[in-house]
Amino acid sequence: MKRKTEALIKEHKEISEGIFSLVLETELAKEACPGQFAGVYPKDGSRILMRPISICDADESSLRMVYRVAGGGTKEISGYKSGETVEILGMLGNGYDLEALKGKRVLSLGGGIGIPPMLYLAKALKMAGIENTAVLGYADNKTFLKEEFEEQCGTYVASMDGSAGTKGTVLDAIKENGLEAEVICACGPMPMLKAVKEYAQEKGMEAYISLEERMACGVGACLGCVTKTVKKDEHTHVNNTRICVEGPVFDAKEVCI
């Protein structure tokens, strides 16, 4: 059941320049699945909307989120100390359909701040016995979460400046290392997702991509966060769909990005 609830900050630290790892104790954790996100509410009253952040990991009683300080809200949140509480809205979004991935080889691609949710997915795939290889794309050699991926699955790295792993994008790393799979799961910036969609189409692979959009409600009420769809959407009855409810994970074939 979705709800707004108060969560206790168990751990909060900077894991790379401007990238923070936040662990929250909350009963919402039980309901989390990979690909989903939660809204974190800033406390400053001038900021009225939640900040959507993906789940990077979860167990029975805690949620972990890894986020980048992007603007005022995340800057404020980065100052919260462990022992404090924070209000969150969750669990939001659909998440990955693990059933659909069974028996297939998966390539999970994370670009920049799209990397964190792929860690939770990597853990779930390992538990489900689904073969998975992660490819992580960074700007430079200031990598984060890389070692944690290595504990879960084969892990390759790409960096735009070539200072870590393959020089270039996650797709360059796939090509350089001759990686093959039946399915791609990807989260990252829009240019990366566009390239992934094209690549999957070319190779005849399935692709599930996680989209981002500005959100107000997070629960499907405001229609702020839509993305264009190939077919008429069952809920909206027009060619767009709500990322916060029907997404953020979509079959790349079904969305026009």
């Binding site: 009225i48 959100m215 107000a216 229609l223 702020g224 966060c225 839509v226 993305t227 909206t236 767009n240």
Partner: peptide, 28 residues
């Protein structure tokens, strides 16, 4: 009838409030 609404971004936060330009998307 159904309306598609406006292109995104449709919402933005501003100091103590927000802006929206949903464009009255509705299913009819």
């Amino acid at each position: 009838v159904a309306w598609e609404g406006n292109p995104t971004p449709r919402v933005a936060e501003v100091y103590g409030g927000m802006l929206n330009a949903i464009g009255l998307q509705n299913p009819g």
